[in-house]
């Protein structure tokens, strides 16, 4: 078995996540795209774990998941707060901090 297809898949998913972050305006969808990027990197970690024959990569993926969970909790709470005050979930509307 070869690891290269996994890595390429990981790269493609990551890139799609990037483009999603850049093009979507709904904060929640943007956030989902961020999760997609995290998952793509997790795939690469797990693949490398297999390729190198140790579990360090899996441990790394595990930590990424934990941190992602914490991040999602806080991030969604922030989105909620913004929505509550501005009645909008668009990331473009929260653009007061400018020149």
């Amino acid at each position: 078995m070869s690891t290269e297809p996994y890595i390429v898949l990981s790269a493609i998913l990551f890139t799609i996540g990037c483009v999603g972050v850049l093009t979507r305006r709904n904060a929640i969808v943007v956030f989902m795209c961020v999760e997609l990027m995290l998952n793509a990197s997790n795939l690469a970690l797990v693949t490398f774990a297999k390729a190198n024959g140790n579990l360090e990569g899996q441990v790394g993926a595990f930590f990424v998941m934990v941190v992602a969970a914490a991040e999602v909790v806080v991030g969604l709470a922030i989105i909620m707060t913004i929505f509550r005050t501005r009645r909008s979930a668009s990331v473009d509307d929260a653009s007061l901090l400018k020149y």
């Binding site: 390429v8 990551f14 483009v19 850049l22 093009t23 774990a49 297999k50």
Partner: peptide, 27 residues
């Protein structure tokens, strides 16, 4: 975003394809 994203993906994929990954050890 599309152009830069495609460029990024292209660079990544090309970069990965240039790397030789050696034999898979297995777990």
């Amino acid at each position: 975003a599309t152009v830069v994203g495609l460029l990024f993906g292209l660079v990544l994929v090309v970069g990965i394809s240039q790397v030789t990954f050696g034999t898979v050890v297995g777990l």
